[in-house]
């Protein structure tokens, strides 16, 4: 089956949505993480930890609370799914200095989450080099079941690819009012993850950066709501 439409939903509302990607069952969760039940793997992308601090280093004193907010949310997801493996799909830190200067409290929270499971940091354009002062394996790409995981969507290798980087968001307009929300974007071949970090913005799926990445006939945005996932087809979006 090569369709991205939702397959099952037992609950009243779609707090997570199961779909299939290159023969692998994947679950899109409304909190912004992807779960692979067969391999008990949790995928999260674009955490942008220490984004506030990265701006502060440049003289813009953004609130220093984004890291703990992002980690708290991730903690909830990890408690909920209890994965064997966690893969952070790049841009885990907003800049390369982020992991080095990570405040002690965040450092120990991270360590607590990592205990008893494998943890992989995929490198991203914001954090291209391995993180030396924290635990976890640092890699450029990783294969999981029949899926290929990397930070930036590739030009040629799209079947079964999961990536991040672009911060996809869906823009929905009704009655003269538009709503922009982060989303999973998938056409059944590839999937692009929403950005997870607390202060990361979204880029409309209609932006030219997404051009040619998807077969728009089958493209769905699984939009993150407050407590549920809203599957919305490409034709319903504007931007």
């Amino acid at each position: 089956m090569n369709m991205a439409s939702p397959v099952t939903s037992n609950q009243e509302t779609l707090c997570s949505l199961a779909t299939e990607l290159n023969g692998v069952n994947v679950v899109c969760d409304f909190r912004g993480v992807l779960y692979l039940p067969n391999s008990k793997t949790l995928i999260v992308s674009d955490l942008h930890l220490e984004k506030g601090a990265a701006f502060a280093r440049r003289g813009l004193l953004h609130p220093p609370y984004d890291t703990s907010q992002t980690l708290d949310k991730l903690h909830q997801c990890i408690d909920y799914f209890a994965p064997q493996t966690v893969i952070s799909l790049g841009d885990s830190f907003h800049d390369q200095l982020g992991s080095e200067f990570l405040p002690e409290k965040a450092r120990s929270q991270l360590k607590h989450m990592q205990t008893g499971r494998d943890w992989i940091w995929i490198s991203g354009n914001h954090d291209p080099k391995p993180h030396k002062s924290i635990e976890g394996d640092c890699m450029e790409e990783v294969t999981c079941e029949t899926l290929q995981l990397r930070h930036e969507p590739s030009d040629d290798d799209k079947i079964g690819e999961i990536s991040g980087h672009l911060h996809p968001a869906a823009v929905i307009t009704r009655r003269g009012k538009s709503v922009r929300r982060a989303c999973f974007a998938t056409d059944g071949n590839r999937l692009i993850m929403p950005s997870f970090g607390a202060t990361t913005g979204g880029l409309s799926l209609k932006h030219k950066a997404f051009k040619g990445l998807f077969d728009t006939k089958n493209l769905f945005a699984h939009v993150l709501g407050k407590e549920q996932i809203y599957p919305i087809s490409w034709s319903k979006m504007r931007g």
């Binding site: 929905i172 009704r174 009655r175 003269g176 009012k177 709503v179 929300r181 939009v223 709501g225 407050k226 809203y230 599957p231 919305i232 319903k236």
Partner: peptide, 15 residues
Amino acid sequence: PVNGEAQESILLEAA
């Protein structure tokens, strides 16, 4: 126009 609090209902409608 609808106000900010009605955003979720717009999403629901589209879905």
